[in-house]
Design a protein around this nucleic acid. Structure first.
Lengths: 119, 119
DNA sequence: TCCTTTCATCGACGGATGTCGATATACTTG
DNA sequence: CAAGTATATCGACATCCGTCGATGAAAGGA
């Protein structure tokens, strides 16, 4: 059962979040709220071609292969990763739109004109 | 033991995330990876003065008062909320820098070259 | 076909987490 | 000091979640 990608892009800090939107958003954030999964995203994004097969991720992560597979599934179900089979290998790459969408959710109402002014 | 605010702002998608950075980031994201806490952030941000006391949050959230207090503590420990006692009431407001910091973490390497030009 | 490699799924275990009722603490008022 | 209100902490419970070994499934090569 592919966890449907949350409606995503609910305003969060702009409009009162309803129960359903909150649930969907929480699911998305839960996907990246794990050290192993954050490192997976980081490692994959850092690859030359922006993609990596599982065999290239197990060792650097220091987790067992089934665990890595599990994490990759969670991220894929959340829509943050896309998978493509190529021969014996399964390649994963991240879905930029999805990541960007999560970023948008955290946009503040008053775009902080504080100390650092990097407009 | 107040969970020290994570070093935060680790690049994530720019540089290979180490174990410690990943752990700290995961803690921060875990804080917002809950429907109740997302709604808390949303409700507080939506208040006229940008702040709210617990008594104004319990009813809209539909959770017991101890549960709300618990969630507020998690968010405060993560540095996302600041608390200030005012008489009998405890007022919470969000910490924009912290939220913005989490946003930055999700910045993609190839940041949509659209119009945004970051140094 | 048989074997090897690569990855996913299964089953189980231990620990973390959300929830709430009861209770403690802090502040105000009388 | 006593009583009332607002919030935090405690203790307990059920559920969720990360982890791994064992096993299954898919693809390629001899």
């Amino acid at each position: 059962m592919i966890a449907k990608a949350p409606s995503c892009c609910a305003p969060l800090l702009r409009k009162r979040l309803g129960r359903n939107d909150a649930e969907a958003l929480a699911t998305a954030f839960k996907a990246i709220a794990d050290p192993g999964r954050l490192r997976l995203l980081s490692f994959i994004a850092g690859q030359p071609g922006g993609e990596a097969c599982v065999c290239n991720l197990v060792a650097p992560l220091g987790l067992a292969q089934p665990t890595v597979s599990h994490h990759l599934k969670v991220l894929t179900d959340a829509g943050l990763l896309a998978r493509e089979r190529r021969g014996t290998w399964m390649f994963y790459r991240l879905v930029p739109e999805r990541v960007e969408a999560l970023r948008q959710v955290l946009l503040l109402p008053s775009a902080k004109p504080a100390a650092k002014r990097l407009a």
